[in-house]
Computed example of a mutant assay.
Amino acid sequence: MPASSFAAKPKIAVSACLTGAEVRYNGGHKASRLCNEVLGEYFDLVPVCPEVAIGLGVPRAPIRLVGDPAAPRAVGSRDPAQDLSAPLQAYGERMAAELDAICGYIFMHKSPSCALERAKVYQANGYPAREGARGLYAAAFCRLRPDLPVEEDGRLCDPVLRENFITRVYAYAQWQHLLADGLSRGALIAFHARYKYQLMANNPREYRTLGKLLGSMTRDDAPEVIGPRYFSQLMQALRRCASRGNHSNVLLHLSGYLRDVLCDEDRREVRQLIDQYQAGVVPLVVPLTLLKHHLRSHPDPYVLQQVYLQPHPERLGLRNAI
């Protein structure tokens, strides 16, 4: 992806406490260094606190989930008669419509309103059920925005999950740009072509499925009909984290474009670094950097358009740790 693709900052919604806003029940915050010092340089962060938005004060008595983990209710921990389920769900539905310009969302983990998974659901005996649940606001929001990249702050400490999430955010942003420019048959096919190797890394099977979907388009098929279906499948495919084996396979495919222009020594060096990456000796950035160096000297227009070579700003260093 060319550097110009990163000129505009995509918008990411973030649980407000992660930005340092003192909106938690105890009057505190959960400021995230990743959000504020790293991602804040590349994204416009949109803070949201559903509990404050529905009228709860700061500080306030905490709320918790109770009942059936498959369909919990949110109630006051000190006053179980205070049922906040409907307001939280309604606000989630409202924000799903209003935050139409965001390209991702980072939720606060363990929160009865914002957690994506494993929020405690308390039972009549006072103990939480074995199964956790999604926070009620997050559940309502995500139900209406199933294609939007979402993640919890705690999971973003994992470098593989972090790189995957940011890759999806930029894919979402690129799709929005495509829609703004006008979705044509040619633009849709070109978009898929740019994502060929990224899809091969994340989900080779879905790469073939999506290719067949576009290949089956007829002149009578409107891009406005095929496009949303394609994009939904694309975003689901990208949710699967790329394995070391799939990355290695993609690197070998890319090196194949250089086979006839590199000397034997350079080819051996490329293969050695790919093998070292697959063995876990070096991070992905090492063989990838060498390939990009050779591609600058021996440019191939098809390869240079591949999102896989630069799915996010290089300065984020996301591939230095995977």
Rank of each mutant, 00 (worst) to 15 (best):
A101Y: 06
P72S: 13
Y172W: 12
V38R: 08
F191R: 00
A13G: 14
T167R: 02
L161K: 08
G76E: 02
G245P: 03
G28M: 12
N202R: 05
A70T: 12
S32N: 05
P69V: 13
L309A: 13
A90D: 08
A193K: 03
L188I: 05
P299D: 15
I106P: 00
M1G: 08
A201D: 03
G27S: 15
P311Q: 06
K9N: 07
I54Q: 01
P2D: 13
R60K: 10
Y91H: 06
D300W: 04
Y302H: 12
P80C: 12
D79T: 12
R145V: 09
L258S: 10
P149H: 10
E93P: 00
A119Y: 06
H192E: 07
S216K: 15
E224M: 14
A190S: 10
Q305N: 05
V303D: 02
L254G: 02
H253C: 07
R194K: 10
G126A: 12
I274F: 06
H294W: 15
A101H: 11
N202L: 09
A173W: 00
A242F: 05
R219A: 14
R143S: 10
M95A: 04
I189V: 13
A21H: 06
H29P: 07
S232A: 14
L99Y: 07
V250G: 01
P69W: 02
V52D: 01
E93F: 01
V38K: 05
R130D: 15
G280K: 07
Q272R: 13
E41H: 10
H109Y: 06
T209H: 11
D44C: 11
N203H: 13
M1W: 03
A171K: 00
E206W: 01
M235R: 02
P223F: 14
A222H: 15
H177Q: 15
L188R: 01
C263N: 13
D68F: 07
G227D: 09
Y170L: 05
S32W: 01
S5F: 07
E314G: 04
A8L: 09
T218R: 13
L188C: 07
V307I: 12
D275V: 06
R319A: 04
D158G: 08
P287F: 02
G132F: 14
K30E: 13
K11L: 08
Y302M: 08
L39H: 03
Q82C: 12
L234C: 02
S111Y: 09
N246K: 11
R118C: 09
R162K: 14
V52H: 00
I102P: 00
G154K: 09
